[in-house]
Nucleic acid binder design. Structure first.
Length: 470
RNA sequence: UCCCCUGUAGCUCAAUUGGUAGAGCGAGCGGCUGUUAACCGCUAGGUUGCUGGUUCGAGUCCAGCCGGGGGAGCCA
């Protein structure tokens, strides 16, 4: 009985012995016939970038069936591993049997034949696009980076915390949320005042899908010291750009007994580590991205990994931008202390000014969230953004306000309802400690890693305004 | 949500100043070949996003609607 071997093992140096009889199972990428009486079938099974060449001799019982194989059909091939007589591969499988598991019903209308397609078209074929070179490579990168992230945290003493997807928290703040409800929309219960009566709803209160696990994970941070979340996140913003999804995955580490400098150090070490892992573990896939998607892909990553991140305060960044303007640099948006940095400013800082990744720290309090720690100057908070050449902001984080009186003052100053924050404030009442963390958008990180231009192509089934197919 | 672009065979695009559609790729068939972005030949395939309007005549001009993309804002 032939052993089932993955295409990856089959093609790996030393993965199989020449002369060994094996079985591979997968899908046909292309088929080429020779009237010399044999057919060449490229079979891929998703385990690696390359497909394996199966050579089917014309004397196979079902050869008529084999020469009708088209791109996308599924096959089980049993044969001997031999040195290839042709160019383009070192080994191939000389088939003793090629069983057709599933033909393609109508090759003329098969949505992803072996030809070039636009990414826009393939988004409409999300259930089949993963059979293409690009999207199977993306799927492997997604897995590899996910594993690298978990491994990095695990090896550095972090615990993965499963913060809730459905949140009853009234204080998450950032952005529009998706409501979670079992109320009958055609017959909504009302209070005597005429408002929607959420007491009748499943949870007895208004609930939403999470926009961030940060507030919850702070709770676990202040007991487990080093924690992180990695899960789906939802924003109901009507954002139609290549960098936004309604459903995306986010990584949010949180460290106790730590300040903003520790946070920046973690961000730098973390990013370098996971990207290094990616280059080490998926060289074939990354070579593909370099060759076909983004010529600078690998160089950009190695430069990123090798460079030390510059640290700079927001105030110094503004000063540098103002000097640049004085020397004639043109920006669409004017530069002044107190404004948020526009992406053109961020790009100038990281690409032109320092020429490597940069961590901008200590932003004006008025443009940042209530939970960020107030600095001694009274006008900036301990926030940071990591900016990278060619992409701009890749990480946003902060040291959290651990002093209850200062936190309360900020909540009141921003007009927030202090009672909504009762449990968050408890964390400051009972054994508070300085702590810090950051958020990283997973699909944006993948865009940086692969050179793919649109996050809709980096998540299997993208959700965007007016689009939730599949 | 705002601005710009766009919607023609399965896919990517053509179609001069409005005169009722072509190519490449893909697919099918045949030829050739230890082939590999194969190559050569033949064939099939379109109510030009939808609705209305202007006109003798609309893929082409106008309006509305629907879809797609890019940018901005928001952010991750």
């Amino acid at each position: 009985m032939a052993t089932h071997v993955s295409v990856k093992q089959c093609l790996a140096p030393g993965g199989v012995d020449l002369g060994q009889t094996i079985m591979v199972q997968g899908w046909v990428r292309t088929r080429r016939d020779s009237k010399a009486g044999l057919s060449f079938i490229q079979v891929h099974d998703g385990t690696c970038f390359d497909a394996v060449q199966v050579v089917a001799p014309g004397d196979l019982d079902n050869y008529e069936d084999i020469v009708r194989l088209t791109t996308g059909a599924s096959v089980r091939c049993i044969g001997t591993v031999v040195e290839s007589k042709g160019k383009g591969q070192s080994v191939e499988i000389k088939a003793d049997a090629v069983d057709v598991i599933g033909h393609v019903e109508d090759p003329d209308t098969y949505p992803v034949p072996a030809k070039r397609h636009t990414f826009e078209y393939l988004r409409e074929q999300a259930h089949l696009r993963v059979r293409t070179n690009t999207f199977s490579a993306i799927a492997r990168v997604r897995h590899c980076l996910s594993q690298a992230i978990h491994r990095y945290f695990h090896e550095n003493g972090f615990y993965w915390v499963h913060t809730p997807i459905i949140t009853g928290s009234d204080c998450e703040g950032a952005g529009e949320m998706f409501r979670v409800s079992t109320l009958d929309l055609a017959n909504v219960p009302r209070t005597p005042e005429g408002d929607v009566d959420y007491a009748e709803d499943f949870f007895g209160k208004e609930t939403n899908l999470t926009v961030s696990g940060q507030l919850n994970v702070e709770s676990y941070c202040l007991a487990l010291s080093k924690v992180y979340t990695f899960g789906p996140t939802f924003r109901a913003e009507n954002s139609n750009t290549s960098r936004h999804l309604a459903e995306f995955w986010m990584i949010e580490p949180e460290i106790a007994f730590a300040d903003l400098a520790d946070d920046a150090d973690l961000a730098e070490d973390f990013l370098k580590s996971i990207l290094r892992t990616l280059l080490e573990e998926l060289p074939d896939d990354m070579a593909f991205f370099q060759q076909r998607i983004d010529k600078t892909c690998i160089d950009r990553l190695t430069t990123f990994i090798d460079a030390s991140f510059e640290r700079m305060t927001y105030t110094d960044a503004i000063a540098a931008l103002e000097q640049a303007v004085a020397k004639g640099e043109q920006f669409e948006f004017p530069v002044s202390w107190g404004m948020d940095l526009q992406s053109e400013h961020e790009r100038w800082l990281t690409e032109t000014h320092v020429g490597r990744p940069i961590v901008v720290m200590d932003y004006p309090k008025d443009i940042k969230a209530f939970y960020m720690r107030m600095n001694d100057d009274g006008r900036t908070v301990a926030a940071m953004d990591v900016l990278a050449p060619g992409i701009g902001e890749i990480i946003g984080g902060s040291q959290r306000e651990e002093r209850l009186d200062v936190l309360d003052a900020r909540i009141n100053e921003m007009g927030l309802e202090i009672d909504d924050y009762w449990w968050y404030r408890d964390l400051r009442k009972y054994g508070t400690v300085p702590h810090a963390g950051f958020g990283l958008g997973f699909e944006r990180t993948m865009a940086f890693a692969t050179g793919m231009a649109n996050v809709r192509d980096l998540i299997p089934f993208p959700r965007t305004p007016r689009t939730a197919r599949f």
